[in-house]
Computed example of a mutant assay.
Amino acid sequence: MDAATQTFITHRNLLFTVAYEVLGSAADAEDVLQETWLRWVGVDLDTVRDQRAYLVRIATRQALGRLRTLGRRKESYVGPWLPEPLLTAPDVAADVELADSVSMAMMLVLETLAPTERVVFVLREVFDLGYDEIAEAVDKNPAAVRQIAHRARAHVAARRPRDVASPAQTRAALEAFQRAVETGDLKDLLDILAPDVVALSDGGGIRRTVPRPVVGAGKVGRLLAAGLKRLRAETSFEPAQVNGCPGLILRLDGKVDTVVTMRVENGLVTGFYFVRNPEKLSRLQQETTLTR
C-alpha cells in the first residue's frame, strides 16, 4: 500500500466524523471523503508537514462548500429536517464529549449556526484544533476565527441542553415510550414530558409524518396517543446506540421504519425525534465508527 493510501485510511474515520458533524448527513459525508481522496492523491507528500492536519483541511473545505449547497436543499425539504441517524459503537458513548456532539439534540443546535460558524465550532470545540489550523481550513485569519468561535460558542450555549442526561435517564424515557406503545397506557410517558416538549418527525415527503413541529405536553401526548394503536399492532422494537446515545429502532416486517431518539433534561423529555425518511435509514444495518 502506498503512503498516501495508508495515511488516508489511517485518518478516514476522523475525516468522516468531521464531515458528518458539519453536515448532519452520512451520505454527504461519504461524498466529502471521496472528494478529499481525489485531492489527496494529487498532493506531493514531501511538501506536507502535518498530513493529518492537511487531510482535515481538505475535508473541511469540501464539507463547507457542500454545507452551503445542503442549506439550499433544506429550503425545499418537505416537513421538518432531522440529521441522518447513525448506529454507533459503545466506544462513542464512552467518549462523553463526542457522544454529546453527535447527539440528535446537539446536531439540531448546530443546524442553527451559519455555515462558517458551524465549521469553526466543530473544529475548535469537538476536535480541539488550533485557531491557526482552523484559519487555514476556512480561509480566514486567526483573529477572525477567534471572533467566529466566540460567537458560535455563545449561540450554542444558549440553545444546547441545559442538563446533559445520563444514558440511564434517556434509556428510562425510551422504555416508558416503548411500554406506552406495547400496553396503550400513556400515563408513565405523560408524567415525564416537559411542559414545552417538542416533537419533530422527518419523513422527507416520502413517509407520512406530522408536517410541522408539535409543541407542548398536551399536543405531544395527543400525537403519541394517535399513533400508538398502529405501532402496537405492527411494530417490533430494538434498543440501540444511535448517535452515541440510547435510541429505539422500530421495524415493520423486519425492515427499519422509524428511529426514535429523545432529548432529556432534568429527568423530563424536552425533545422527541422520529426519523422515517427511508433515504436516511440506510446506515442502521451496521455500526458507523466515529472518532476524534
Rank of each mutant, 00 (worst) to 15 (best):
F274P: 08
T258S: 10
Y273G: 00
Q285F: 08
Q286E: 14
Y273L: 01
N277Q: 05
Q285P: 09
F274A: 04
G254K: 04
L290Q: 09
T288K: 11
V264A: 01
D257V: 11
T288V: 12
F274Y: 12
T270L: 10
G267H: 00
F274R: 07
V256I: 11
M262K: 09
L268R: 14
V259M: 02
E287C: 12
V275G: 02
V256Q: 07
T261V: 00
T289C: 15
V264Q: 00
S282D: 09
L290W: 03
L281Q: 02
V260A: 09
T270C: 10
T289V: 15
M262C: 11
V275Y: 03
F272T: 07
N266A: 14
T291I: 05
G254P: 10
V264C: 02
V264T: 02
F274W: 09
L281R: 04
Q286T: 13
V260K: 07
T258H: 06
F274M: 05
G267Y: 00
T291H: 07
T288A: 13
G254V: 04
N277M: 06
Y273F: 05
G271C: 04
P278H: 06
V259W: 05
T289F: 15
V259H: 02
F274L: 11
R283N: 12
T289D: 14
T261H: 02
L281D: 03
R263V: 12
L284S: 04
L281F: 01
R276H: 08
M262H: 09
D257G: 15
N266C: 14
Q285R: 15
L281S: 05
E279Y: 11
T258W: 00
K255I: 15
N266P: 11
N277C: 07
T289S: 13
R283I: 12
G267A: 02
T261Y: 05
D257Y: 14
L284K: 03
R283K: 12
T291L: 10
K255Y: 11
V256C: 07
L290H: 07
T289P: 12
L284Q: 03
V260H: 02
T291Q: 12
K280T: 08
T258Y: 02
V264D: 00
G267E: 00
S282P: 10
V256W: 03
V256F: 03
V264F: 01
T270W: 03
E287T: 13
G254I: 08
Q286H: 12
E265P: 03
L281N: 06
L281Y: 03
R263W: 13
R276P: 08
F272M: 05
V269C: 03
V259T: 04
T291E: 11
T261E: 01
E287F: 09
K255P: 11
G254D: 06
R276M: 12
T258V: 08
P278N: 02
G254R: 02
P278Y: 05
Q286M: 07
